[in-house]
């Protein structure tokens, strides 16, 4: 089984995500204003800055440790619903690949799928509730299908990102049923969910990291 992602790639992914979230701080917060409480971009930026500060200590460790450390940093710094949800995403993703220093495409499916399951468990969220799950769930499905069909990794990740993007855009007409957005009722319709948007950004960054990065072969 060929290895498609090294722990170096995982660190690059987290670093690139921190940069993307800093860049989109205002955009995510603007998305959060009409239906939430205008803090999503600020919280995610603060959280990934904390992740950056914790990374040097675990750079030599396995992928599982790196991801769990990132998750714990998010739990202790993001606050709101985003902290436990994204924190659990990375902690559970890390647990699924504990001890590994290189990941195959099947490991990557397991990683993201475990993260998604953690989010669903903590958030008690269903598909269609207008949350980050609406981006993550179709992305996991697309990636799993592509890997099972033996599609080349770059194409599999492109399909994953495309599904996340579609899932994100599909939240626009949805009526929010979870979180603060559910309080505005019908007025949540017509707005793109900020959590689905940040989830899409994180997955898109994963695709870009692996497309540009140095790959291990095994």
């Amino acid at each position: 089984m060929s290895k498609i992602m090294t722990k170096r790639d995982v660190i690059e992914w987290l670093k690139a995500t921190a940069a993307v979230l800093e860049e989109n701080r205002r955009y995510l917060t603007d998305l959060d204003s009409p239906i939430g409480d205008a803090d999503h971009g600020i919280n995610m930026d603060r959280g990934f800055k904390k992740v950056m500060s914790q990374l040097p200590a675990v750079e030599d460790k396995d992928v599982g440790t790196i991801l769990r450390t990132a998750g714990m940093a998010l739990v202790s710094s993001v606050g709101g619903a985003g902290g436990p949800l994204y924190g659990t995403f990375f902690m559970d993703a890390g647990k699924a690949v504990a001890g590994k220093t290189e990941l195959s495409d099947e490991d990557l499916v397991l990683l993201i799928e475990s993260g998604l399951k953690g989010v669903v468990r903590i958030g008690k969220t269903n598909l269609g509730d207008k949350t980050m799950v609406d981006a993550l769930h179709p992305a996991v499905e697309a990636l799993r299908r592509a890997v099972a069909d033996g599609v080349d990794t770059a194409e599999a990740l492109r399909l994953m990102t495309e599904a996340a993007s579609k899932g994100m855009v599909d939240t626009i007409p949805m009526l929010a049923k979870k979180g603060r957005a559910s309080y505005v009722g019908e007025r949540s319709i017509g707005h793109q969910d900020p959590g689905a948007t940040s989830s899409y950004m994180i997955l898109k960054t994963l695709m870009e990291t692996l497309a540009s990065g140095h790959r291990a072969t095994g």
């Binding site: 409480d37 205008a38 803090d39 600020i42 919280n43 603060r46 739990v75 202790s76 710094s77 993001v78 606050g79 709101g80 619903a81 902290g83 436990p84």
Partner: peptide, 11 residues
């Protein structure tokens, strides 16, 4: 106390 309008963290 969390950040303004943001819940505090478990720690």
């Amino acid at each position: 106390p969390g950040a303004v309008f943001t819940s505090p963290t478990p720690d």
